[in-house]
């Protein structure tokens, strides 16, 4: 009896997995966090939500709370003060979750690398799934990057 139930459960999971994956790919909700950047990349990310680029047609919504988001989009170099907060935000997100580093500063520290309060890029603190360089990153590059990430889901 147990074996029948177990095999039924695993068959159900096989049928529903593609549906779940399709749902995740069609509605990646993002949480944006600026970990110490100049704002250049932030306003380009906000720009993707505005009528010219309109990423909501790809299912992307900008969420307010870490617990509602699938993708953490980080801009700016990580400073000493934001390092722990970044880690805490990442831990609050539910699995499966992805991290995208937008802009040269979050990739490597960028032009501020070596500053006395700068830790480095996001990779020093979190496991990064996607790096999108640029200073600042164009909205087209951000959309292209997110689309590539969706291909991996």
């Amino acid at each position: 009896m147990v074996q029948v139930l177990e095999s039924l459960e695993s068959r159900l999971r096989n049928w529903t997995q593609p549906v779940v994956r399709w749902a995740r790919r069609k509605s990646p909700w993002i949480l944006h966090f600026n970990s110490g950047g100049c704002n250049g990349c932030d306003i380009e990310i906000l720009d993707t939500l505005t009528p010219r680029y309109d990423v909501e047609r790809l299912g992307i919504l900008k969420e307010a709370c870490p617990r509602h988001a699938d993708v953490l989009v980080v801009t700016g170099p990580v400073t000493r003060q934001t390092r722990d907060r970044l880690r805490r935000i990442y831990e609050q997100m539910a699995e499966p979750k992805w991290v995208v580093a937008v802009g040269s500063c979050s990739c490597s520290g960028g032009i501020f690398a070596g500053g006395h309060n700068v830790v480095g890029g996001v990779g020093e603190v979190l496991p990064v799934d996607l790096y999108i360089p640029g200073c600042p990153c164009r909205p087209e590059a951000i959309i292209d990057g997110i689309a590539k990430l969706l291909g991996k889901i």
């Binding site: 110490g36 400073t79 003060q81 070596g114 500053g115």
Partner: peptide, 14 residues
């Protein structure tokens, strides 16, 4: 404040 402090004035001297 200070979360975005990157030490730019010191970096300028270098």
């Amino acid at each position: 404040m200070g979360y975005v402090h990157r030490g730019i004035e010191r970096l300028c001297e270098e």
